Structure formats: structure tokens, C-alpha cells
Amino acid sequence: NQASVVANQLIPISTHLTLVMMRSEVVTPVGIPAEDIPRLVSMQVNRAVPLGTTLMPDMVKGYA
């Protein structure tokens, strides 16, 4: 099972991601792979992401 990136807190819209905001967890459905966490740092979310939500490629500007 592959770990995905999950929000560690509420991430407001247009926030630049930091390591503190993300954790890796095995979830269904599978989202952005956990090994991409370093790549996600300083990218922006294009919507509010609630605590515990799996980050999907379409939620992060410039990821997909």
C-alpha cells in the first residue's frame, strides 16, 4: 500500500505548503504520493483543505 499526502491541519486557500502542514498516511482513495512531499513545499493549494483530507493533484497549483 502506497502512502499519500494528507493535510495535518486546515490549509486555507492559496496557502504555500510547508512540511508541518502535511503527513503521509495510507488512505483510500490514493492521492499525491508521500514521496512527493519535498516537491510540494512552497506550492500553493487552490482550495481550502480540511484537516485529514488527502491531497489530490488538482488541489495543488502547478503539481499536475
Score class of each variant (00 low, 15 high):
1 N>P: 13
1 N>H: 12
1 N>D: 15
2 Q>P: 14
2 Q>N: 14
2 Q>K: 08
3 A>T: 09
3 A>N: 08
3 A>L: 12
3 A>H: 09
4 S>D: 03
4 S>H: 01
4 S>G: 04
4 S>K: 01
4 S>Q: 01
5 V>G: 02
5 V>Q: 01
5 V>K: 01
5 V>P: 01
5 V>Y: 02
6 V>D: 02
7 A>E: 01
7 A>G: 03
8 N>C: 11
9 Q>N: 05
10 L>T: 11
10 L>R: 11
10 L>N: 15
10 L>F: 13
12 P>T: 08
13 I>H: 14
13 I>N: 12
13 I>Y: 15
15 T>L: 04
15 T>M: 09
16 H>D: 06
16 H>L: 13
16 H>F: 15
16 H>E: 08
17 L>M: 06
17 L>K: 00
18 T>L: 08
18 T>M: 13
18 T>E: 07
19 L>K: 07
19 L>Y: 14
20 V>Q: 12
20 V>E: 09
21 M>T: 03
21 M>G: 00
21 M>H: 09
22 M>S: 01
22 M>K: 00
23 R>I: 06
23 R>D: 05
23 R>E: 04
24 S>D: 06
24 S>Q: 08
25 E>L: 10
25 E>W: 07
26 V>G: 05
26 V>D: 15
26 V>N: 10
27 V>N: 03
27 V>G: 03
27 V>T: 13
28 T>N: 10
28 T>D: 15
28 T>Q: 12
29 P>Y: 04
29 P>E: 06
30 V>A: 11
30 V>T: 14
30 V>N: 12
31 G>C: 03
31 G>A: 03
31 G>W: 03
32 I>Q: 01
32 I>T: 01
32 I>A: 02
32 I>L: 05
33 P>I: 10
33 P>E: 04
33 P>V: 08
33 P>K: 08
33 P>L: 08
33 P>T: 07
33 P>M: 06
33 P>D: 06
33 P>Y: 06
34 A>Y: 07
35 E>W: 10
35 E>F: 10
35 E>S: 11
35 E>M: 10
35 E>I: 10
36 D>I: 06
36 D>Y: 11
37 I>C: 05
37 I>L: 13
37 I>N: 00
37 I>T: 07
37 I>Y: 03
38 P>K: 10
39 R>N: 09
39 R>H: 08
39 R>S: 10
39 R>I: 08
40 L>F: 01
40 L>K: 00
41 V>Y: 03
41 V>T: 05
41 V>P: 00
41 V>W: 03
41 V>K: 04
41 V>E: 05
42 S>D: 13
42 S>G: 14
42 S>N: 15
43 M>F: 10
43 M>V: 04
43 M>W: 06
44 Q>Y: 11
44 Q>P: 05
44 Q>R: 13
44 Q>L: 07
45 V>M: 06
45 V>P: 01
45 V>I: 07
45 V>Q: 00
46 N>G: 06
46 N>F: 06
46 N>W: 08
46 N>K: 09
47 R>V: 12
47 R>T: 10
47 R>L: 08
47 R>D: 06
48 A>I: 14
49 V>N: 02
49 V>M: 05
49 V>G: 01
50 P>W: 05
51 L>H: 12
52 G>K: 02
52 G>M: 04
52 G>L: 04
52 G>V: 02
54 T>D: 02
54 T>A: 06
54 T>G: 00
55 L>F: 13
55 L>E: 02
56 M>V: 07
56 M>I: 08
57 P>W: 08
58 D>S: 11
58 D>G: 12
58 D>M: 11
58 D>F: 11
59 M>N: 05
59 M>W: 12
61 K>E: 13
61 K>F: 13
61 K>P: 09
61 K>Y: 13
61 K>S: 12
62 G>W: 08
62 G>L: 08
63 Y>Q: 03
63 Y>I: 04
64 A>M: 15
